[in-house]
Design a binder for these strands. Sequence first.
DNA 1: CGACGTTATATAACGCGTTATATAAATCGG
DNA 2: CCGATTTATATAACGCGTTATATAACGTCG
Lengths: 159, 159
Amino acid sequence: MAEDVVRAFGFLSLGTRMKRIGERLQADTQKIIDEMGVEIAASQYPLLAAVERLGPLAVGDLADALGVSQPGVTRSIAQLVDLGVLRAEPAPDDQRRKFVSLTAQGQRLVDEAKEAIWPRIEAAVADLCGKLDGPLLDQLAAIEDGLTALPLNRREPKP
Amino acid sequence: MAEDVVRAFGFLSLGTRMKRIGERLQADTQKIIDEMGVEIAASQYPLLAAVERLGPLAVGDLADALGVSQPGVTRSIAQLVDLGVLRAEPAPDDQRRKFVSLTAQGQRLVDEAKEAIWPRIEAAVADLCGKLDGPLLDQLAAIEDGLTALPLNRREPKP
DNA sequence: CGACGTTATATAACGCGTTATATAAATCGG
DNA sequence: CCGATTTATATAACGCGTTATATAACGTCG
């Protein structure tokens, strides 16, 4: 088995490594969602959660709240509007702005997620790294090893 | 200023957040490399470093060493071969396998990087998160705040 | 030895992020 | 009040990761 170069390089490849871990966590999270029979991509939940938490919001404000670029959220919104979970309507006073809100179906989806999915994900991630402490690189190694030993979707199944 | 939803959700959106931080680190790293007038993308360095560290290696072994998929490294290799820094030649005994090695130009590039670029990056990242300790989410918050306060390319300029 | 399964790499299609730029609406200044 | 600038969103093109599948070479077995 070849050496894990990205890990071996420590701080030098920290960006690559964090991105890699993030993708792995997202992939495992997607598995949990799939197992629960929901049709929404894991990556869309932050957007739905932001709309629910902050109320109807313009595209640019959503981009700020999510920390991603405006074209990125514009595209995600378009997909979720197509799926019928989001609605986008121009602001009455300023036709440039578009306010995004949950449809009834979207609200149901979020309610379900809050009830059944998010607690499960949060518990699994907390199980993986809630107890961690110490230097960053050690924690990252523990996360990678922990995921290899037992992926997120095998952790803390709903009691 | 809108609330940072991904941060607020804690473990629930940890994957999204780590990916986001990784991308930000990579982007800052790219700035450092650009400032030093080198024409290689930051994302290619792990591949070059792996080839240098582990010697001539087959495509699949490189994928293992880097923790990415085989098609991913196949594509990166193709680009670096086009740039003239890598060479790929079929193994004499097994024509399916392709061994990847540094060209003279590639070796020069790596030597330069080891001399001037990697130490600078490592110092900047160490400055950002070498002292961190404690729970993971606190460290991530410190990293994000630290990058906002002073991006990597402003840290520890070469003495 | 030839067919068949296996293994290594290549290609295709897609996801989701980015930057750069286009378009349309609002605002500002003469 | 109209032209110029600014602001908000949309679109296009690309980067770099993925999975699924095609192709070619190897090994094995009847």
